[in-house]
Amino acid sequence: MKPVDFNFERPASLTDALELMSRDDMNVVALAGGQSLLPMMNFRMVRPDILVDLNGLDELRGSEIGPDRARIGAMTRYSDLASNAELMARLPLLASALPHVANSAIRNRGTLGGSIAMADPTTEMPAVMLALGATIRLASRDGERSVAADDFYLGYYESALESGELVIAIDVPTAAPGDAFGFYEVARRRGDRAMAGAAIARRNHEPRIAFFSVSDRPVRGFSAERILGENAASVEAAEGSLKEIDFHGDLHGGPDLKRHLARIVLRRAWAELQP
């Protein structure tokens, strides 16, 4: 289907973009890669009065790599990330997850900031950022603020992003010697949204374990983290502890299927950390 008629703006600076986003008398919607938004507009689930195209904002595109963290601009495309060898070497968990995001043509347009803002519980990037303990940087006309990935996701397609705000960057802790990472997802076909997945980052013997496509948002397995932090071999006990997660079903099946798949993806992602 075709989208409703709307006005199109392509601001040349973040300041102009935030000014447009601050209008509360109309439905103002930001357009990043468009790989989720344009389908929703074609289905007329989203009907913007004004579409604010962020693709002219070079200041939001690209990455800076510091000694222990990388700052990734919101408009950096998946394909920009994957082709940045230095960044991928410093963020091995992100490198493992990227090939599972849709397919090449969608990765050539889709952006990291768009995926973070979309808060789609079935997608890889929010869980990867949760496992890595990333911080999401937001801006509005009134200023900037940062929200930890742990506090950002509130439910299906719902995040701490407020009206008038844009995601401008994601600050991601980079890998240090001794850190280990694991990623595993189950999907019907490569590039399809996952039926379930797990992303694990272990630093100083402390794992952070994030699941996606098992609940209404990306979720951590706190007990599993504690159990595996104490004894890396107690995978079975860690699997048993996943009962604490609030599993939600989807088109693939109910909460029981999700619980079953969560155990499997945990086991397989954890196996990747072992030397």
């Binding site: 199109f8 790989q35 344009l38 074609n42 195209d53 090449s104 043509a105 050539n108």
Partner: peptide, 10 residues
């Protein structure tokens, strides 16, 4: 390579 249906002509 991109999806032509997910890009506006503008």
């Amino acid at each position: 390579a991109v999806r032509g249906c997910l890009m506006l002509a503008v």
